[in-house]
Design a protein around this nucleic acid. Structure first.
Length: 325
DNA sequence: CATGCGTGGGA
DNA sequence: TTCCCAAGCAT
């Protein structure tokens, strides 16, 4: 059923560094780096990383600081720590686990990555469900509605027996490559898709509505915020955009007990049409904790799900700026 | 099961 | 400018 897919993949596959006959270690490194990260971004990082740590033993023996150096800029730094821990586990085991469960037990390796390594590195059949594969398969089988955990298991069981013998690795990568290049979220190129003839979503006109978009947590901006930096329970600095006199300045707080500061503030300014919200975002640098507080303005009709969604993603950069790190 | 974790590119 | 989100995982 998926022969056309494999033919397409053989013909169209991109020449990527981790597709040049690398071992299980190379596959693992690439898969970890590729988690939530685009191929084009990963390529140079992968090459530098593999040049410095060509073998699993070298990664296992390296200092964590150096591993971080080579990871710097990639984001999701927990991956770097877990990857080295996984390398150490592999060395301790005397080699890579050869079962799906064994791979799954490595730190940083979840259902997807275990299946990917299992199939790509060892050529054994496994269904690696990443975002691409889920989209491709959901459309192919016209799976409407939310893909819950049990439905995912059903999907895996359904696809597993369809994996061509001796081509498990290619199958895994072909599914993802198709999702990345043709069966894209919007504007799928069905006219040139190798799976078009068997695609149930295409037949039913469901390509644009399947898979169901994940219910995204609704986030709204609020126009009042405070930023607080503390070490343990001690509040070091605070910045309050709502304060008529201190707006935009970094100040030491009135109350250094670390508790009740914002409640006390509101009681100091009883006319202020705000009520205290809660910490909406936080980041930790060594022993320093930076918190973003938000308010819910009483003037606006906002439900309890309302969340601050300002520059939260940029908080680490802001923090390093403020702290001189 | 919902949430947080980084970054850069495109709509 | 703003928002979305891309080869997920751990908690």
């Amino acid at each position: 059923m998926f022969e056309q897919l494999l033919n397409w993949y053989t013909r169209e596959r991109r020449d990527l560094p981790w597709r040049r006959g690398v071992d299980a270690y190379g596959v693992l490194v690439s898969e970890i780096m590729l988690q939530q990260t685009r191929v084009e971004v990963v390529i140079p990082y992968y090459q530098r990383f593999m040049q410095r740590f060509p073998r699993v033993e070298q990664l296992a023996e390296a200092s964590l600081d150096e591993v971080y150096e080579y990871w710097a800029g990639l984001g999701y730094y927990r991956r770097a720590r877990n990857l080295q821990a996984a390398a150490q586990a592999v060395v301790a085991l005397g080699g890579f686990p050869t079962t799906l469960e064994g791979l799954r037990d490595l730190p940083g390796v979840g259902e997807y990555t275990a299946a990917a390594v299992f199939s790509i590195a060892f050529g054994k059949p496994a269904v690696a469900l990443d975002g691409n594969a889920i989209r491709v398969l959901s459309r192919f089988f016209a799976l409407t509605g939310t893909l819950t955990a049990p439905r995912r298991r059903d999907l895996i069981a359904r696809v597993l027996p369809l994996i061509p013998e001796q081509q498990a690795g290619d199958f895994t990568q072909a599914l993802m490559e198709l999702g990345a290049r043709l069966c894209v979220p919007r504007g799928a190129r069905c006219l040139v898709c190798p799976l078009a003839s068997g695609c149930q979503a295409l037949a039913g006109g469901l390509v644009d509505s399947v898979p169901a978009p994940a219910p995204r947590a609704r986030r709204e901006k609020v126009d009042l915020l405070a930023l607080r930096i503390r070490r343990g329970d001690q509040v070091l600095l605070e910045r309050r955009e709502d304060d008529p006199f201190l707006a935009g300045q970094w100040v030491t707080p009135w109350f250094a007990d670390g508790e009740g500061v914002l409640d006390r503030y509101v009681s100091e300014f009883p006319g202020t049409p705000v009520r205290v919200g809660q910490v909406s975002h936080g980041v930790t640098f060594r022993d320093l904790r930076i918190e973003v507080w938000d308010w819910e303005t009483s003037a606006l009709d906002c439900g309890p799900e309302r969340r601050w969604a300002g520059p939260g993603a940029r908080l680490p950069r802001l923090a390093s700026l403020v702290l001189g790190l």
